[in-house]
Design a protein around this nucleic acid. Structure first.
Ligand SMILES: Nc1ncnc2c1ncn2[C@H]1C[C@H](O)[C@@H](COP(=O)(O)OP(=O)(O)OP(=O)(O)O)O1
Ligand SMILES: [Mg+2]
Length: 306
DNA sequence: TCGGACGCCAC
RNA sequence: GUUGUGGCGUCCGA
């Protein structure tokens, strides 16, 4: 009966409780986001709020709830590429929000201390501070910068379910997540299956990504390798360049073989504190150009103060 | 402490 | 037109 073996069995009732669905709606409302495939705006959903919430609650409770297909929107990504958003209908964002509120506290307590992305009370600046501490205080001045290709889009559906199932036994929850992942997407008026990935635009996608990538965090930790992770942006710290090459090979093996992900080789490189490394829009570089010294300057990319 | 509006940043 | 999570800031309201 150890706490670490605790699993959660009945959670679906919290997801479909009208109280939580109502709170979820208010959260969706505060985002002021655009409608999904059905064209129903947050505002018009809110006009028949109690009726809609009651319907959703019944559907989720009975298991007949089916998420609508995603609406596909392409937005430019800084570097000239495009990002494919998958926008769920408002009603589906409400259900996802409610589900997220239930799942988050369960997984949050076990996440790796050096995981910073998408987590309550954590920000990019703290991640950078941790990175500076690893590189300077612990003398781990050889740094691997690593990024994943199309991170959300490449998450394996079965592995997502399995990683959630490690802590959640409620089959209705797992079935609900599966339905969300398999909702498909409308492209040029034609339904297309979603065979991999969690939608960029889905409410629970960031949480699912963290649950999924926690396997990486824990496997690196088990080998005593220091990392800092912000979503799919990863730093790995080591004492020597040789070790950095070894750790990178280990990381690639975990990510690509065990976890079916793709390391973005263009955004992956081995560097040092003296040369400086890039992370979350910062450049972190040792002013003294000596690994042992602790004074580190970081040049801000953006002038955002005042 | 929480909530609303707007803005910026990371992913 | 553009979604989501998290953070920060300015203003306003209990
Ligand atoms: N504007 C956004 N809306 C929703 N999700 C986002 C947004 N920006 C980033 N994300 C999520 C989804 C991405 O898969 C994940 C990692 O971001 P990022 O590395 O910039 O893109 P990517 O991993 O999808 O493509 P790339 O192959 O270019 O790295 O963060
Ligand atoms: Mg990426």
């Amino acid at each position: 009966m150890q706490e670490k073996e605790m699993k959660y069995y009945s959670l679906i009732d919290k997801v479909y409780s009208e109280k939580n669905l109502l709170k979820a709606y208010h959260r969706v409302n505060s985002n002021r986001g655009a409608p999904g495939i059905d064209g129903v705006t947050v505002k018009s959903f809110g006009e028949k709020l109690l009726e809609e919430i009651e319907r959703l609650s019944e559907e989720v409770k009975s298991g007949e709830y089916m998420p609508m297909p995603l609406r596909r929107v392409e937005i430019p990504k800084g570097n000239g590429e495009t990002r494919q958003l998958g926008i769920p209908a408002v009603r589906d964002r409400v259900v996802q929000q409610s589900l997220k509120e239930v799942l988050e506290p369960i997984f949050e307590e076990r996440f790796h201390p050096s995981s910073y992305g998408y987590r309550k009370g954590r920000n990019a600046w703290q991640a950078v501070e941790k990175a500076k501490a690893f590189a300077s205080k612990y003398g781990l001045c050889n740094v691997v910068e690593l990024d994943l290709s199309k991170c959300f889009d490449t998450l394996d559906h079965e592995k997502i379910i399995d990683s959630v199932a490690e802590r959640v036994s409620d089959g209705k929850i797992l079935k609900l997540i599966r339905a969300m992942l398999k909702s498909g997407v409308m492209e040029d008026g034609v339904w297309k299956a979603t065979e991999t990935g969690s939608p960029q635009g889905g409410v629970i996608s960031p949480l699912l990504a963290n649950i999924y990538l926690d396997e990486f965090d824990q496997k690196m930790k088990a080998r005593g390798i220091r990392i800092v992770r912000y979503a799919d942006d990863i730093l790995i710290f080591s004492k020597t360049q040789e070790e950095a090459r070894e750790f990178l090979a280990i990381a690639i093996n975990i990510l690509e073989i065990d976890m079916k992900l793709k390391v973005n080789r263009n955004k992956t490189r081995i560097t040092t504190l003296e040369e400086g490394f890039h992370f979350l829009g910062f450049e972190i570089v040792n002013i003294n150009r000596k690994c042992e010294k602790t004074s580190i300057g970081n040049v801000e990319k953006h002038q955002r103060f005042l």
